[in-house]
Design a protein around this nucleic acid. Structure first.
Lengths: 196, 196
DNA sequence: TGACATTCTATCCACTCGGATAGATAAAGC
DNA sequence: GCTTTATCTATCCGAGTGGATAGAATGTCA
């Protein structure tokens, strides 16, 4: 029974994610959401619970994809793997263009009030995932004997965490001084300098 | 001739800056701007040229203050000065609370489209100011003989630039994993590890 | 084929947005 | 004290917001 949806839930959420990523939450209207994803405003209310609820769903999807596609190659590559990951993040081709809009999570942290607990919960997951992956990557490098004894894994992971976040921000800007390549090259050089 | 303004231009711009800083551009309406700063919506149009123009003015003011109050102590402090600056940014008391909303420039980069040239011009200045101050600080440290010969100033400055940007982002979030202190301590430790 | 459940289409709603305008008001110069 | 000039107050505007709803359309199952 029941009439078919114009767009299945998966592709609607993915399309919405790309739009929120590009425009931000406030700047994207429900009518644009409707015309660009095939999602109906009626369905947005009855099935997704409104704009904000759908947005949080897209944030969750974003983090799922981040965890599934970006982090694995970081975790296992050793020291040179970390450096290479920073220089050229392993982004699926379909996301290459979207990444020019920075990181949906970073963008969302700045766009919502400091005490938005729903967004903070996602931010917590984001930082947690990234930090854990960096720690794992560094510990793998240490186990392989690649890492200088002077390097403290926990501290190095924090510095790399900051580096990744800053890269995500500089992607969003066209300002020449915000050139991401410049930051990435310096970061990769730093990592290579950590070798034993 | 002419009636007096309810609020002088300087305090109106400063007040508007704090509000944009706290709420973001889209989330702050002209009516809230009016009631919280004393600025009149009439004056906003006739003297400032509308909401966006005023916003850009507050961005310029923000960068002026950043240059005048935050960067000098960074430039001149030597290696330990850099580490201390990262751990405890020299923020005037009146801005302590506002800084919980992150950095107005960082927030603005994420909030506006990638090709907003007016915002990009300010972002370019921000990155330029910060990078130059970091380079100067590191070169001062080198001149004093404090800096290890293995450290390349240009690369180290990029890493510190990323660290500062990431700190500004983590201020904005209440997520436990985004704790700024954690990042700052690791960054300061890294800087101290650069000593000769 | 007809009953039923669900979505779609098309409005409608109350509200807010940034901006514009007209008449009242206040300060300075003559 | 009157004129002049700029700002204030109050209102209005058209457009857009997220959300709600009623009737038409569509798909499944008995």
């Amino acid at each position: 029974m029941s009439r078919a949806l114009k767009t299945d839930a998966e592709s609607a959420t993915l399309g919405a994610m790309m739009l929120f990523w590009r425009d931000g939450y406030h700047a994207l209207g429900t009518r644009a959401l409707e015309s660009e994803t095939g999602l109906t405003r009626f369905t947005l209310q009855t099935k997704y619970g409104g704009k904000k609820a759908l947005f949080l769903k897209t944030l969750d999807l974003y983090l799922d994809l981040f965890d599934a596609y970006m982090l694995p190659s970081l975790r296992s590559g050793g020291l040179e793997g970390i450096a290479a990951w920073i220089e050229q993040r392993p982004v699926p081709d379909s996301f290459r263009e979207a990444l020019r809009n920075g990181c949906l999570m970073v963008n969302s942290i700045t766009e919502f009030p400091r005490d938005d607990s729903a967004v903070n919960a996602r931010a917590d997951r984001y930082y947690g995932l990234l930090r854990a992956a960096l720690v794992e990557a560094l510990e793998t490098a240490r186990a392989k004997g690649e890492l200088s004894g002077q390097i403290i894994v926990a501290d190095a992971a924090e510095v790399l965490l900051a580096l990744v976040v800053a890269l995500n921000l500089s992607f969003k800007s066209k300002a020449p001084n915000a050139d991401a390549g410049r930051i990435a090259r310096a970061g990769a050089a730093m990592v290579r300098g950590w070798s034993a």
